[in-house]
């Protein structure tokens, strides 16, 4: 019974991480689309006012900053609310770096 629940937990973890990956992928495509619409002029370069250039770069930085914050918040939510199930643990301290 315990082994069965362990297998279910592993399957659940992989499925939830794949779902997380799908959301991150979708977000990445959206950010790329928004950045390419706002910041990169289509076709040959044309002289544009300085203010417009500043606006383009500012808009991209804003998009990237929002994305970074949302991405991290989502990961934190996923770890503490979706994946984790409260359980006690002990054990010797190690690290996850093998080299």
């Amino acid at each position: 019974m315990n082994a069965m629940s362990n297998v279910n937990d592993k399957i659940f973890t992989v499925c939830m991480l794949v779902l997380f990956l799908l959301i991150v992928w979708g977000m990445f495509l959206c950010v790329l689309y928004l950045a390419s619409v706002f910041v990169i002029p289509l076709g040959a370069p044309s002289r544009e006012p300085l203010l417009l250039s500043i606006y383009r770069i500012g808009a991209t930085f804003l998009i990237l900053t929002v994305w970074v914050i949302v991405w991290h918040r989502l990961a934190t939510f996923w770890l503490y609310r979706v994946l984790r199930r409260d359980k006690g643990h002990g054990g010797s301290k190690g690290n996850d770096s093998s080299s």
Partner: peptide, 17 residues
């Protein structure tokens, strides 16, 4: 489980079991 620990993929993988 500490909130001060860095968020890594291995930590996410091992958070449930």
């Amino acid at each position: 489980p500490s909130k001060k620990a860095p968020l890594t993929l291995v930590r996410m993988l091992t958070s449930r079991c």
